[in-house]
């Protein structure tokens, strides 16, 4: 890749400065092929590029230029998301918003002069503006310490969060290789198990294997709507009500205005409730099946 195009026709939203620069570029993007691209899994949060695509669609509509712009979503996964049911729902939303999904695309290189992505098996996707999610790695300090795998993630027991190689190390969040998202909600739920197990380890007690991969997140879909998903290692995102059965008030895996309001309320809850360590009613670190339709 020719780095000269980085920050011009090739952008990312994963760093603060890059995101600010992208905002300026988007203001002047009026026509052409707009590609949102994931290089390689895992990424910090598999929802983020989807949400970005939905919001870009909304933004271009508001600016009255959407009809002159083709949006493509290029992913190494075989669908919009990592779990089949959510992949179907989210894929449907992409189609509804006229966003073309190009699955099973493993990028080998970017020809930045010809402005195209080229996959290992010779497929090509042209772009005018490329928003890419670069390869996501753990911190260099983990690489230097030889604690990590080839992507600097520490091999970790999925349920106790203890390092597989070193019994006196416990791992969560961006540092671990457990097959869960590296999003805030996951780290939040992991913290309960992690703290519990560090105390148990120090006291010579048996560890608890109770982290179940629980993740939940709001996905803004544009037009002041959103959807909510709640899932873990075993159980993929399902439809239903959240966090309470029947009354919800949020609806899982369905686009709606209330879910968007939920996200706005959550922003307040994050700073005023979660950061203080207070529990949120109806949401625990282990996923609940209450209110979910199998």
């Amino acid at each position: 890749m020719d780095d000269g195009e980085w920050g011009k026709s090739i952008m990312t939203f994963y760093e603060f400065e890059a995101a600010k620069a992208l905002r300026e570029i988007l203001k002047n993007f009026n026509q052409g092929i707009f590609v949102v691209h994931i290089s390689e899994m895992p990424i910090k949060c598999p929802v983020a590029p989807l949400e970005f695509s939905f919001l870009a669609d909304d933004y271009f509509k508001k600016r009255g230029v959407r009809e002159q712009i083709t949006i493509k979503y290029v992913t190494p996964l075989d669908g919009a998301f990592t779990k089949p049911k959510a992949s179907k729902s989210l894929g449907h939303l992409l189609t509804e918003k006229n966003i073309e999904i190009i699955p099973d695309f493993n990028v080998e290189r970017i020809d930045s002069k010809a402005k195209k992505l080229i996959s290992y098996d010779g497929k090509e996707v042209g772009y005018d503006l490329l928003i890419t999610v670069p390869v996501t790695k753990g911190d260099d300090v983990i690489g230097r310490s030889n604690l990590g795998d080839e992507l600097n993630f520490v091999p970790t027991d999925h349920h106790t969060l203890q390092s597989k190689a070193h019994k006196n190390i416990f791992v969560m969040g961006d540092a671990t290789d457990v097959p869960a998202s590296k999003a805030g909600s996951v780290a939040h739920f992991q913290a309960d198990t992690l703290v519990d197990n560090i105390i148990r380890y120090l006291q010579g007690q048996e560890l608890v294997a109770n982290f179940d991969g629980h993740a939940n997140c709001f996905i803004e879909t544009g037009g002041q709507k959103g959807l909510v998903i709640d899932f873990n290692y075993e159980i993929e995102p399902l439809e239903g009500n959240f966090p309470f059965p029947v009354i919800g008030p949020l609806r899982l895996l369905r686009e709606g205005r209330l879910n968007h309001v939920g996200k706005l309320i959550f922003r307040w809850m994050y700073w005023h409730i979660i950061l203080r360590g207070w529990p949120i009613p109806g949401i625990s670190n282990k996923m609940s099946m209450l209110g979910k339709k199998k």
Binding site: E40, M41, E108, D121
Partner: peptide
């Protein structure tokens, strides 16, 4: 757990060849 990256680095096969052997996915 295996990934395409790990396989590519394994010395068993490079990624390009892997795609030729198992086209598509």
């Amino acid at each position: 757990e295996m990934s395409i990256r790990k396989l590519g680095k394994s010395g068993i096969v490079d990624i390009k060849t892997l795609y030729e052997l198992f086209p598509g996915g």
